[in-house]
Design a binder for these strands. Structure first.
Lengths: 229, 229
DNA sequence: CATTTATATGACAGTTTCGTGACAGTAAGC
DNA sequence: GCTTACTGTCACGAAACTGTCATATAAATG
């Protein structure tokens, strides 16, 4: 469940530097060299965060930013802007367009990493935090421990990954196909109904007596993690 | 749920350029080469937005515009006008006739895309937003939840899709055939009367006691989502 | 007002979708 | 080898949903 970061940068030296360091940090990396390529890749892979150079060939950074914000699927992906210009105008324009943070070149890799963590934590805590909570449920991604209202719960590997995925976007409904893709992997072939079985097992595990069912079935659509049932 | 854009343009090179770029952007495209063809296609397909060249063979752009505005079914489809002439008179005449925006040739594709998004958002937020509201009704397409004045409402899959479609054009009347097409799919054969039943079920679900009926029956025509009953 | 036409709705049977226990196969640990 | 934990598939019953019809109600027509 490593976060995927999309780097959009035309300076290849800088790009390599970023990719190398962020991969070492544990992120998956996708790179694009111009705005056009970036938009294509982003809509295809829907990364968890975008690092965007301000000055780009073909389509400028600000335009990439604007377009991403205009589309529902990419509207909520956090963006960190890299710019050579330090003047205030740019800062405002950048953040106005919907960027979440911004860095002026030259910057330290350490600082970039810090900003990335900060932004990811704010937008999707499930991606960076070891411990993620929802309602009275608590999962520790390092020790693979799960608690419901303080009580320890044992989950099998698949159930853990399933819950871990659902908890990333609480409330959002995932189709069986989406879950297969995310939890099982897009390469293996498994029956869609298998998801039902594992959801059932997950339910049985986390719904200890006297608790509300945290998993909602949306008929003909899929499942979601949702306290309001 | 991809928006359908009708392009009306006699210059084939420009037409191809537009079609290519907008398709890549995620829109469905329909093209017409003159005003006559345009009117035909538009009344047939009822696109979500029209890009209209000002200078057209057979029927001029301004005339197409006027006729569209005169007909109830097409009155609210946003129109963006393309023109070679940059003088103010035209612009005013265009917007006067009911066009929503205006671009002077030559223009950048980027700018056109930006205008399209802006217009769509203004006119039909349901196409770009995940949570859509109408009156005291609220539907969330990510969590698949429906609320009426804060109260949670349960809808079956078909009723959900039906409401989701009606709310795209609040106030607009849909014939049973149109609804069958949009909600059931153009390939399945279902009785037109079946729509009545589902509308009835939707009514019963969303019209909780003490609320006005949000669905309007238009005798001999169809149904619409409409608060003024 | 009588008649025709259009819509509302309860009932119902057929279908789809879900939940779950059972089971066999696999892998890991001892 | 034996045990244990886990996985994916299936089958079957339960529940939810669907489409159609028959009947009731309402609106237009003349």
């Amino acid at each position: 469940m490593r976060p995927l970061i999309q780097i959009v940068e035309d300076d290849e030296a800088l790009e390599a530097l970023l990719a190398y360091n962020l991969e070492k940090e544990g992120y998956k990396i996708s790179v694009a060299n111009d705005g056009e390529e970036a938009l294509l890749q982003i809509s295809e892979k829907t990364p968890d965060l975008i690092i965007l150079d301000w000055m780009l060939p073909k389509i400028a950074g600000i335009e990439v930013c604007r377009r991403l914000r205009a589309r529902t699927e990419t509207k909520n992906i956090p963006i960190i802007i890299l710019t050579a210009r330090a003047d205030e105008t740019d800062k405002i324009r950048g953040l106005d367009t919907g960027a979440d943070d911004y860095l002026t070149k030259p910057f330290s890799i350490t600082e970039l990493k810090a900003r990335i963590r900060a932004v990811l934590r704010r937008i999707r805590p499930a991606l960076v935090d070891e411990i993620v909570k929802y309602h009275d449920l608590e999962i520790d991604r390092v020790t693979h421990r799960v608690k419901r209202g303080g009580a320890e719960i044992h989950l099998g590997p698949t159930e853990f990954r399933l819950l871990n995925h659902l908890i990333q976007h609480p409330g959002r409904v995932f189709s069986r196909e989406q879950l297969l893709d995310a939890v099982w992997g897009s390469d293996v072939y498994v029956e869609a109904r298998t998801v039902d079985v594992h959801v059932g097992r997950l339910r049985k595990a986390i719904n200890i007596p006297g608790c509300t069912d945290l998993i909602r079935t949306v008929r003909a659509s899929g499942y979601s993690l949702d306290a309001n049932n």
